[in-house]
């Protein structure tokens, strides 16, 4: 599979602060769902902002789909790589939800009809039809994030970056959203880069990149990460409940595989139990 995002010896530094990345190289394959984890202040968000040109590297090169990110290509790359912020208030511009969704498309010179079509489609998808004429600030935190996600989806991006983006969604909305993301990824061959602390979200991804001290220290599967207690602690993470419980059981001498969820765990503990069809 081709790499859609490639960092070659990237250096980055915020003004008047210590260097964040000196020589960072990594790549993310097209269609993959990649989670970025690391200790607080390790530069996870900085890394994702470099990916869509919100920040510019001091040295090295960044390529998106083979195109090198520079002053000429940055606006094109903005469109191809959607960025969803942690706090949805940072994402709103217009006075109504609908206008806000239209804003990004207006910059892409789409026809009025096409814009309306996309707004309708995405608002139904995300269940926000009833709010289209409301002011974004009149929505609750979780509702705002759904609107922000809609504003991104109408642009039909190739890569989506989630910077702790689902942390304000309630559980049901988050789960629905995750299901939808899995679907979208398959349908549109979407690449997802997610910065998150959520165990379930990490578990849902294909690959985890661990960033520490400005370096890529590990690239592994979610399960490989969750069984490394020390690394988890460093990244301020906790494993999913089923993994934690499997580990607790093993610690007490019970011979059980490490399970991803409660269902797997019950099956592993009592294979003779009738499995619900």
């Amino acid at each position: 599979m081709a790499a859609i995002i490639r960092f070659n010896q990237v250096g980055f530094q915020y003004p008047k602060r210590e260097s964040m990345f000196a020589d960072l190289s990594l790549h993310i394959e097209q269609g993959q769902w990649v989670t970025i984890v690391g200790p607080n202040g390790s530069g996870k968000s900085t890394l994702t902002k470099l990916m869509n040109g919100l920040l510019a590297p001091r040295s090295g090169t960044i390529q998106i789909g083979g195109v090198t990110l520079d002053g000429h290509t940055v606006s094109d790359i903005h469109r191809r790589v959607g960025y969803l912020f942690q706090n949805p208030d940072n994402q709103f511009i217009a006075a109504t939800v609908q206008d806000d969704m239209a804003f990004g498309m207006e910059n892409r010179c789409l026809s009025q009809e096409e814009m309306q079509r996309r707004i309708n489609q995405v608002s139904v998808e995300l269940g926000i039809q009833d709010w289209l004429h409301r002011h974004p600030s009149s929505l609750s935190g979780g509702q705002k994030q759904r609107v922000a996600i809609a504003g991104l989806l109408v642009l039909d991006p190739e890569v989506m970056i989630w910077d702790e983006a689902t942390s304000m969604l309630d559980e049901q909305a988050r789960r629905e959203f995750m299901t939808r993301m899995r679907q979208l990824r398959v349908e549109r061959r979407l690449t997802i880069v997610s910065v998150t602390h959520d165990a379930e979200e990490i578990m849902a991804s294909d690959r985890v990149l661990v960033i520490k001290d400005g370096k890529l220290v590990a690239g592994l599967t979610p399960m490989e990460l969750f069984v490394q207690g020390e690394l988890l602690q460093e990244c301020c993470l906790r494993p999913p409940f089923a993994v934690e419980l499997s580990l607790e059981l093993r610690r007490r001498g019970v011979d059980v595989d490490i399970c991803r969820d409660e269902e797997e765990l019950v099956n592993a503990l009592w294979p003779s139990c009738p499995v619900k069809s």
């Binding site: 559980e171 049901q172 789960r175 999913p240 409940f241 419980l245 019950v266």
Partner: peptide, 22 residues
Amino acid sequence: AGLALPAALRLRQLLDERCKER
């Protein structure tokens, strides 16, 4: 009410469904 069941309760429910005895 739109809340996710806590893991502890999910496990409890699974046990209820699958293994009444346990």
